[in-house]
Amino acid sequence: MALDHDILVWFSKSFGLFYLLALSLIVLVYAYWPANRKPFERAANAILHDDDDKPYRG
């Protein structure tokens, strides 16, 4: 099947729109999901408190 210009335009204008809306929604839900609040805060603060400056050895 030849992927002609009209098909490409139709695909961009339909699927393109909805997949971006969906992705935006997923990102917003992830960022504001209440359970994620703690790990985010921990991550934001963790970089300030690595005074020992040495790697973990497991």
Binding site: L20, L23, S24, V27, L28, Y30, A31, Y32, F40, E41, A43, A44, N45, I47, L48
Partner: peptide, 18 residues
């Protein structure tokens, strides 16, 4: 000081990427 809003950094990351 920690980054002002960690959530904002995530949202702008995906915004920039998309």
């Amino acid at each position: 000081r920690p980054i002002y809003s960690y959530r904002m950094s995530i949202i702008s990351f995906w915004g920039i990427t998309f």
